[in-house]
């Protein structure tokens, strides 16, 4: 059954186990505050978050809007520094670069660069010969199935294709760690399912450590080894759930498994409670009857 190592008071929760016990990403009592405007009192975005993600694990971070999911990823990439606690990526402080791939919530493609040039952008910090570079680019574009659009500009692509480019760019340097921020949130349902399958295929091939942010319970269960549930304002870890479903999960209809439904019921109920308990949510204090 799922593990509930710790409650909402947010003391250390450890997520280890799975295929490789070596620690890939470690958050140790991390806190981060933001001031809405310069000089305003900082508001705590995440507070006292501790979690350990094992090497080569796929961990989904699940939580309602505003619970600090993006903030966690930016911290893990070293794009921002924590106010409290520390973060380690394979034992070292996070350093943005080719070792950590980041797929953003919005695609963030360079509009004046072609698909190939955008993918090549991900390789900028690597010492490669021209031929190696071109090779890598072609290989990763092929991996996401965009070979025929290599010379197209982003403006001419569909949302799904743009997200593939962003994925190829993040994968191109062959990073040990892959951070993904709701990468499929703005893609239509059909494309999303296909992309989820492809991501699983790529992950099985590349063996990277993945931190995947989502607010979709189904997506989290379908993809992850572990699910970290966050509560909002301030963002903190509420629960860590082990997903003990067989892999690969995209080759059969995992959603029909009794275990899948059990996990979904539990997580959906938890998410609902978090939203109802959030004073800044429009559903605050309402008492919905569980279905």
């Amino acid at each position: 059954m799922h593990r509930s190592d710790d409650g909402p008071d947010g003391r250390p929760v450890s997520v280890t186990g799975g295929r490789n016990p070596e620690a890939g990403i470690v958050f140790d009592a991390v806190g981060k505050s933001f001031a809405a405007t310069r000089g305003a009192t900082p508001i705590s975005a995440i507070k006292d978050v501790s979690l350990t993600i094992g090497a080569e694990q796929f961990v989904a971070v699940l939580g309602p809007s505003g619970c600090g999911k993006t903030t966690l990823l930016r911290l893990a990439d070293g794009l921002i520094q924590p106010d409290a606690g520390s973060i380690r990526i394979f034992g070292n402080p996070p350093q943005p670069g080719p070792d950590i791939g980041f797929v953003f919530q919005s695609f963030r493609l360079i509009p004046w660069a072609t698909v190939a040039q955008n993918v090549e952008f991900g390789l900028m910090d690597l010492d490669l010969t021209k031929a190696e570079r071109a090779d890598r680019v072609a290989q990763n574009i092929d991996l996401v199935g965009l070979s025929r659009a290599a010379d197209a500009y982003p403006a001419t692509l569909s949302g799904g294709m743009r997200q593939r480019v962003a994925l190829a760019r993040a994968l191109a340097p062959d990073p040990r760690v892959l951070l993904m921020d709701e990468p499929f949130a703005s893609i239509d349902a059909q494309t999303r399912e296909l992309m989820q399958g492809e991501l699983m295929r790529i992950w099985a091939q590349r063996k990277s450590t993945v931190m995947f942010v989502t607010h979709s319970v189904d997506e989290a269960i379908l993809l992850a080894d572990q699910i970290v549930l966050l509560a909002p304002r301030p963002g903190r870890v509420v629960e860590v759930v082990n997903v003990d479903l067989e892999r690969p999960r995209w080759t059969f209809d995992a959603r029909a498994e009794p275990r899948f439904m059990e996990l979904r019921r539990h997580l959906a109920e938890q998410m609902r409670k978090l939203v109802l308990a959030d004073p800044s949510s429009e559903f605050f204090g309402r008492d919905f009857v569980p279905h």
Binding site: D77, L79, P96, G97, F102, F104, R108, F121, M124, D125
Partner: peptide, 8 residues
Amino acid sequence: EMAQSVGA
């Protein structure tokens, strides 16, 4: 920010 994350 994207460029920074790539190591620029």
